[in-house]
Design a protein around this nucleic acid. Structure first.
Lengths: 234, 234
DNA sequence: CCAAAAGTGTTTAGAGTACACCCATGA
DNA sequence: TCATGGGTGTACTCTAAACACTTTTGG
């Protein structure tokens, strides 16, 4: 069990960027640490990889512990490995990128971890290189959402086109033309009209759609065009 | 120096996917192992991350040792972390994706590592999960080259448009219309006409271009469209 | 009846595609 | 002069973008 005698064993951490959308702002699920090290400061949700668990299983475990959710959208983002990134001990951190439907999480689990939903603009200073990780994740969100239908992962099962538009406007921080956006989205064929109407609106009620999950899975890797071409830069 | 007493220390490996282009085929630089473990079998070039080195520095070191090249195109691709991926000991491997100009490498260093350029179709069975890594890298090459001008990293400093076209045809395994391709590439404004002509051709000599490195760096992250729309799926 | 938000239609400009012709070179 | 490969032009189609009008709802 020691075929590589001269190589160094290193701590492998997993940190999770968890995005949500409250209908208005993109939010991050962050931890106000009440444990060492760096107690009292803010950080991403994380943990260490166990010897007997796959990397993706480790990420799922950590995400499940915090949100109570399984089968959510998770991608491995990047591994951070600067020598001094963790002041306590050399640690390499694999960062995962998760999108969840903000209302679906287990709020009891969130509270018990001392975690809070913070909008991107108001995010506090984070420990170690976690701010860099968040920046990287925001960049990735913008990039990926322009080409692939990941936006739906942030919305409830039933959603309206205006909600979807507000989401994209929040991601890219720009106003989008209602008419072009609507036509573009409907032309993807990913949306199914449920026949129901939204009740939240004080004026005309918007049509509630759901995602055509079959087409979604089938054509996920095609290149779409969810953003105005003018935004096609990161 | 042990603030995380209950966490496991794990070997962190670095494996490198190295792509080259010989004018006809996309090639991989692979190692015929003459060392343990798995001696005699084929693998990617790799090594272990040292305690006192940044992750990216580790990748640069390994790439430099094999090719003698610095300042090449390197991206971190993905970290592989299945429990039993290395039969000898639990090892997490961070995979890096490199593009090099095939004629520029140090062939002495390559020979001393028992490394060979193998075209994608003829690649041998690889150890551990290295085949999975290669598949992931090919996917990534197709994806990225459709949107960003990384193709130039595989060509010599002076190149012709027909060469560039052969490269894209090799990446995607499809024929491309000469005229449309040429117009599309020239319209990016990334190519500078050197005034020289290629001598390799037995017929009409093609114009030699070089990359406008300033514009390249500046607009690298914009979304281009280097591929026919019909290929826009991975 | 009025303000606010949702839904639909039209015109124009530019990009992608398919296709045809001419030019330069070495054999 | 001929075969091969390089360079350029054009017509058609499709999509994105800019823009205006109508409909529904609660107050």
């Amino acid at each position: 069990m020691n075929n590589y005698p001269q190589a160094s064993r290193i701590l492998v951490a997993i940190d999770c960027i968890i995005f949500g959308f409250d209908g208005k702002d993109i939010k991050l699920l962050l931890i106000k640490r009440n444990f060492e090290p760096e107690s009292g400061k803010w950080s991403l949700m994380g943990g260490f990889l166990n010897l007997d668990e796959d990397l993706t299983d480790g990420a799922s475990r950590i995400l499940y512990n915090l949100t109570g959710l399984k089968n959510i959208y998770v991608e491995q983002l990047e591994t951070f490995g600067k020598v001094d990134r963790d002041s306590a001990e050399r640690t390499v951190s694999v960062v995962f990128f998760a999108l969840i439907r903000i209302d679906y999480h287990d709020s009891e689990a969130v509270r018990s971890h001392n975690a809070y939903w913070i909008s991107l603009e108001n995010r506090p200073k984070l420990i170690f290189d976690h701010e860099e990780m968040v920046c990287r994740a925001i960049e990735h969100l913008k990039y990926k959402a322009a080409l692939h239908p990941i936006g739906f992962e942030l919305l409830p099962d039933l959603f309206t086109i205006p909600q979807l538009q507000k989401l994209y406007e929040a991601i890219y921080n720009i106003p989008i033309d209602r008419r072009n956006f609507s036509r573009k989205l409907l032309s993807t064929g990913l949306l199914i009209d449920t026949g129901f109407k939204n009740n939240n609106s004080a004026t005309k009620k918007a049509t509630l759609y759901r995602l055509d999950t079959l087409k979604y899975r089938e054509k996920f890797h095609s290149f779409w065009n969810f953003m105005p071409d003018s935004m096609k830069q990161v």
